[in-house]
Amino acid sequence: VTTYKLVINGKTLKGETTTKAVDAETAEKAFKQYANDNGVDAVWTYDDATKTFTVTEMV
């Protein structure tokens, strides 16, 4: 189990959160659900070296 981080650069929601998951795909599903629940529709990137997902909402 690995800890993954999500950085949110949204128009109305900004911040960071983490989740523990067995792999990046599982973490991504959890983070996308979190973003969807909070109304963030954005572009996703992932950095495997830092285990960090970044979501940037387009203006």
Rank of each mutant, 00 (worst) to 15 (best):
T3S: 06
T12K: 11
T54H: 07
T12N: 12
I8S: 03
F31D: 01
L13K: 09
D47A: 02
L13S: 08
K11R: 12
T56K: 05
T26G: 06
E25L: 10
T50P: 00
V43C: 10
V59W: 13
T56R: 04
K29G: 04
V1H: 10
Q33Y: 04
Y34Q: 04
M58N: 11
T50V: 04
T50S: 08
T52Y: 00
K32P: 01
A21W: 04
L6K: 01
V55I: 13
G15R: 13
A21G: 02
T45H: 11
F31G: 00
T18E: 08
V43W: 07
V1L: 15
F53S: 00
K5D: 02
L6F: 05
Y34A: 04
K51G: 02
D37R: 09
T3Q: 08
A42M: 14
K11I: 14
T54N: 04
E28P: 00
D37E: 12
V59T: 11
M58Q: 11
W44Y: 02
T52V: 04
A49P: 05
T18N: 04
N38S: 10
T18M: 08
W44H: 00
V40A: 06
V59Q: 11
E25A: 13
G39C: 10
V40E: 05
A27V: 02
E16C: 15
G39W: 14
T54P: 00
K5G: 01
Y4V: 03
G10W: 13
K51Y: 07
T19G: 02
T19Y: 13
T2P: 05
Q33V: 08
A35E: 02
G15C: 15
F53C: 00
N38Q: 13
N36M: 14
M58A: 10
N38T: 12
K5T: 13
N36C: 12
W44L: 06
V40M: 12
D23Q: 02
E25W: 09
A30E: 12
T54W: 11
T45E: 11
K14G: 07
T3R: 04
G39T: 07
T26F: 04
G10P: 02
A42E: 04
K5I: 10
D47N: 07
E28Q: 09
T52A: 01
A24D: 03
T2W: 10
A35S: 05
T12W: 14
V43I: 13
L6D: 02
W44I: 04
G10K: 07
T50F: 03
A27I: 02
K20I: 13
W44T: 01
